[in-house]
């Protein structure tokens, strides 16, 4: 094979790989939307109906409990994780920590970032056992917040680092304190930070492994912060292989709701990042 044939071959393979990946994505989204949409669109009320008393057996009612559970768990968790991760990211900038310190902390963050979600689930479960509590909404929030924290810190840190130094220098030049300067820097880095928060939210709402043992696989409406709850991914996981066709179809409908939510979040993140780019110096006006 001469070098030009080789070039053609690999050029073709590179295109084919990219095409394969796009095709797989279309297949995954298509199957979810087709199979789930067929159930969901014929009876959209299934997402806002509370489950019946023998839900796991006959699929009576709907899965409002999982929709609400997802929101009640992921929204507070995202708020907590955003506060913590933004603070950590500000600390990692050179104003507060030496290069050495931030290197060490970054190393730990990388390890946390790569930690399998199931480990967080097991960790929170051992805490639950240690304090003698039961699986409940509040521990679901804790588990998801821990899971989101390293992801969102990474986005926030990258955004803050890419904010131009001129902003910082100008702020210090006017006699601002470090905290006031950090506020200015955060504003300049807002597009990246918001994109990070939304991606963290999307990851949190889609994750099952962390909440599987911590939120409790409840099949009733969430009763309060100390009562068991469930989320959409748990519902899909539990019901996807059920023998009852009705119960199974609810998993399909739930996956439709979930994938639409995640896709909407990604689009929102791109749009918002563009919108807030006006705060960034040199960004779109």
């Amino acid at each position: 094979m001469d070098r030009y044939a080789e070039q053609r071959l690999f050029g073709f393979l590179a295109r084919a790989s990219a095409a394969l990946i796009v095709a797989v994505l279309l297949l995954v989204v298509g199957v979810t939307i087709f199979r789930g949409g067929r159930v969901f669109l014929t009876d959209p009320a299934v997402a806002i109906t509370p489950p019946g008393s023998r839900y796991m057996l006959d699929g009576g009612g709907g899965f409002l409990h999982a929709v609400l559970g997802s929101l009640f768990i992921v929204v507070p968790a995202t708020v907590v994780a955003t506060t913590l991760s933004l603070s950590t990211a500000v600390f990692l900038q050179s104003d507060y920590s030496s290069e050495r310190t931030s290197d060490v902390i970054n190393m730990f963050l990388n390890v946390l970032w790569g930690t399998p979600p199931i480990v967080y689930g097991v960790f929170v479960l051992t805490v639950i056992i240690a304090v003698g509590a039961q699986t409940s909404l509040i521990f679901g929030i804790v588990a998801i917040a821990i899971f989101q924290y390293p992801i969102m810190t990474r986005y926030a840190d990258e955004a803050l680092q890419s904010a131009p130094d001129a902003v910082k220098e100008a702020s210090y030049g006017l006699g601002a304190t470090r905290f006031e300067t950090a506020r200015v820097t955060i504003r300049a880095a807002l597009p990246g930070i918001i994109a990070g928060v939304i991606m963290g939210f999307a990851r949190g709402i889609g994750d099952a492994a962390t909440v599987l043992f911590t939120a409790g696989r409840s099949t009733q409406m969430p009763g309060g912060p100390f009562e068991p709850a469930t989320t959409l991914p748990i519902l899909i996981f539990e019901q996807a292989a059920s023998f009852n066709a009705e119960v199974r179809s609810h998993a399909y409908a739930a996956s439709f709701v979930l994938i639409v939510a995640v896709l909407a979040l990604i689009i929102a993140s791109k749009l918002l990042a563009g919108r807030y780019a006006r705060f960034a110096p040199g960004g779109r006006q």
Binding site: I21, V22, V24, L25, L27, V28, V29, V31, T32, R35, M199, A202, R203, I205, G206, D207, A208, P233, I236, F237, A240, A241, A251, Y252, S255, L258, I259, V262, L263, L265, I266
Partner: peptide, 20 residues
Amino acid sequence: FIDVLAAIPSVIFGLVGLIV
């Protein structure tokens, strides 16, 4: 497309795996 693929929850991959 690849960004979207990365953001799809793994439980949905599991479900599509069961179906397909």
